[in-house]
Simulated assay, not measured.
Amino acid sequence: MRVHDITMPIHPDMLHWGRKPEVEVVESIEAGHASNVTRWRLGTHTGTHVDAPAHFVTGATPVDEIDLETLVGPAVVLDLTGVEGEITADHLLAAGAAGHERILLKTTNSGTSGPIHDTERAPAWVGVGPSAAEWAIEHGVRLLGIDYLTIECHTRTDTWDVHHALLPAGVIILENALLTDVEPGEYELVCLPAKLAGADGAFARTVLIER
Rank of each mutant, 00 (worst) to 15 (best):
W17C: 13
E86W: 10
V72M: 09
T81W: 04
V141K: 07
A89L: 03
V26E: 09
H11E: 12
T46R: 03
D147Q: 07
R211Y: 11
M8N: 09
L178W: 15
S113V: 12
G198H: 07
E120Q: 06
E186D: 11
V37E: 12
A75W: 02
V72F: 08
A202C: 07
L192T: 15
G47M: 00
L68W: 03
L178H: 14
V83A: 03
A132I: 08
P21Q: 05
P21E: 01
R211V: 12
V37T: 14
L78W: 01
V23I: 11
P184Q: 03
A122G: 15
N176P: 02
W17S: 14
V76Y: 07
T70L: 08
W135E: 00
H154I: 04
M14A: 13
E188Y: 10
L143P: 01
H55T: 09
G59N: 03
A165C: 15
C153D: 13
E134F: 05
E120G: 03
I87M: 01
L178D: 14
A52S: 07
L80Q: 03
D90Q: 13
G32R: 12
N176R: 05
P115Y: 00
A165G: 14
M8V: 12
W40T: 14
F56Q: 11
D13W: 06
L80W: 02
I103Y: 00
I137D: 01
V207F: 13
R39C: 10
H16Y: 06
L174W: 01
G73L: 08
P53G: 04
T159L: 10
I6V: 15
V141M: 04
V25G: 13
H91F: 04
E86D: 09
M1G: 07
I66R: 00
K20D: 15
L78T: 08
L192C: 12
P9I: 04
A34Q: 14
H91I: 04
F203P: 03
L208M: 09
